[in-house]
Amino acid sequence: MGELGVFIILALVTLIPAVVVVTSHNIVRAALSLVPSFLGVTGLYILLQAEFVAGIQVLIYVGAITVLLLFVIMLTEGGTGVRLRQVNEQVPLGAMAAVWLAFVIIVILTRTVWPIGAGSPPPYNAVAIGNAFMTDYVLIFEATSLVLLVSLIGAIVTARGEE
């Protein structure tokens, strides 16, 4: 019962700012509204006993990605102070797609049998995650590193192009 209450509160904390993100006329407010939304998701991770993922969520999404977004918005000429219109003339089409998607998701959620496993969830601690990266998922891990390296070099080349 307590868990359900916490889940409802966290869901509201996640969803209400998310609505502000897609409706606000002010782009800085929209970007900043991502913060409570991310923090709500962090709360959900903690509810699922994934503390490590929760810490990383705050560090990366709240502390780095939102800051980067704001940084870019504030450096863009005319990026701030402009009254933003987030919708265009295709609203009916979009609304129909959204309703259909919601219908599909609800159908899937109600039709699925959710098996509840016995016992406690596996420990999501740093040691287990590190071991998984270095053994079972080492190929994916290395491939991701390579992609990040390429994008890093690409960013440097793009930034130096003006010289």
């Binding site: 900043l32 913060v35 503390e51 490590f52 929760a54 810490g55 990383i56 705050v58 560090l59 709240v62 502390g63 780095a64 939102t66 800051v67 704001l70 940084f71 504030m74 601690n125 740093a126």
Partner: peptide, 21 residues
């Protein structure tokens, strides 16, 4: 908590949001 120092650096990184705002 078992993620102590990670938690610390996560909280420290929130400060800049206040400064930027």
């Amino acid at each position: 908590i078992n993620i102590g120092v990670l938690y610390f650096s996560a909280m420290a990184s929130i400060t800049v949001l206040g400064i930027l705002t």
